[in-house]
């Protein structure tokens, strides 16, 4: 039975809708600083960074089925390395590069050890390594500033010596740096998800054993996923430092690892756009609810409970149902039409 004309039409329609949505989104993101003011631009920068963080996290969680509670450690490594570089030199790109590479290297080493295990053992191992990073940052006062963190980090100009130098010291101009890097990062992630590598990772999530019997080393692919999501966490941390102009040890605490996790759960783990939509909802909801009550965590806590017990597909799967027509998807325990 080949695809019916109706099915092909539906697919084309869905593709067109998706393209229009993406175009509209990019347009809004592009004109946002001119039209909506500094506060919104600041907020949007935060959301974009969280979206990148969560999307990278979901490569590990949603695509490979591994829950890490040590993600904040890599985020903090990216942030601190970037902050140290920017405090010493004034090359923004060098700071980013340093942050990503340091986080990636740490993720490779730690991942090599953690990916021998799965499930609880993996979660506990990543938790312990993350807390090791946290305790190093907390105690190594000479380098990290201890509990004060690193402050007065400059928003250095975007420059390559001898070629160009662009001032990005305002929130609006720095926003564009964030936008470009996040867009690039997410584009690369999209390619990855649709590559053979992405297929192998999704295979691991569905049935590890079958991946091994397909001739692939599960541990190697888990490590790749771990390193990628570690690098993305490091990139997010690096981007955050010039925005906040500081780095603090709280960034590395295990409870901070919950942030990308919450965003991902909220948006939906089985969907590429899920973590990004989740990041948006999480951040905006936090800003709005925080105006009425200081008990934002409680609202978040209840949301998590409801999501896990009732809507594990997240917001995106609900939206998808409204925007796109589906033929049916499969959950781990069976089929949900």
């Amino acid at each position: 039975m080949e695809k019916t004309i109706g099915e092909i039409r539906m697919e084309n329609r869905n593709r067109v809708v998706a393209r229009w949505l993406l175009g509209l989104l990019l347009l809004v993101l592009f004109i946002l600083p001119w039209t909506l003011g500094t506060y919104v631009t600041w907020t949007a920068s935060n959301i974009l960074i969280l979206a990148l963080y969560a999307a990278g996290f979901n490569i590990l969680f949603g695509y490979s089925g591994l829950l890490s509670f040590g993600q904040a450690g890599f985020y903090a490594i990216g942030a601190y390395v970037c902050a140290k570089i920017l405090l010493g030199t004034s090359f923004l790109l060098l700071g980013f590069l340093g942050g990503v590479l340091a986080a990636g290297l740490a993720a490779l080493i730690i991942g090599f050890l953690c990916t021998r295990h799965t499930q609880i053992y993996f979660a506990m191992l990543t938790l312990s390594f993350g807390m090791m990073i946290h305790s190093i940052i907390w105690k190594w006062r000479d380098v990290t500033g201890g509990d004060d963190g690193l402050v007065n980090v400059p928003r250095a100009p975007l420059a390559i010596p001898g070629l160009f130098s662009i001032d990005v010291s305002s929130v609006e101009s720095y926003y564009y740096v964030v936008l470009v890097i996040v867009a690039l990062g997410i584009f690369l992630l999209w390619r990855m998800v649709n590559s053979p590598l992405g297929l192998a990772l999704q295979g691991i999530r569905d049935s590890e054993q079958r991946v091994a019997f397909s001739g692939l080393s599960i541990q190697k692919f888990r490590l790749i996923a771990f390193a990628i999501s570690g690098m993305y966490a490091g990139m997010a941390g690096s981007l955050m430092v010039p925005l906040l102009k500081s780095a603090d040890p709280g960034m590395a605490h295990w409870t901070a690892s919950a942030e990308p996790l919450m965003a991902t759960l909220l948006g939906g783990i089985y969907n590429f756009a899920g973590p990004m939509v989740g990041a948006f909802i999480l951040y905006v909801a936090k800003e709005l609810i925080a105006r009425y009550t200081e008990y934002w965590s409680m609202v978040l806590g209840f949301t998590v409970v409801v999501l896990v017990l009732g809507f594990r597909g997240g917001v995106v799967s609900v939206l998808q149902g409204l925007l796109f027509r589906r033929t049916g998807t499969v959950s781990k325990r069976g089929v949900d039409a």
Partner: peptide
Amino acid sequence: FQNIQLPVLARLGYAAFPLASRD
């Protein structure tokens, strides 16, 4: 399709290609 595609890509040595479209 993907269920068969994964072992085939693995055998041909393409499974770790990170950025090329798998199709």
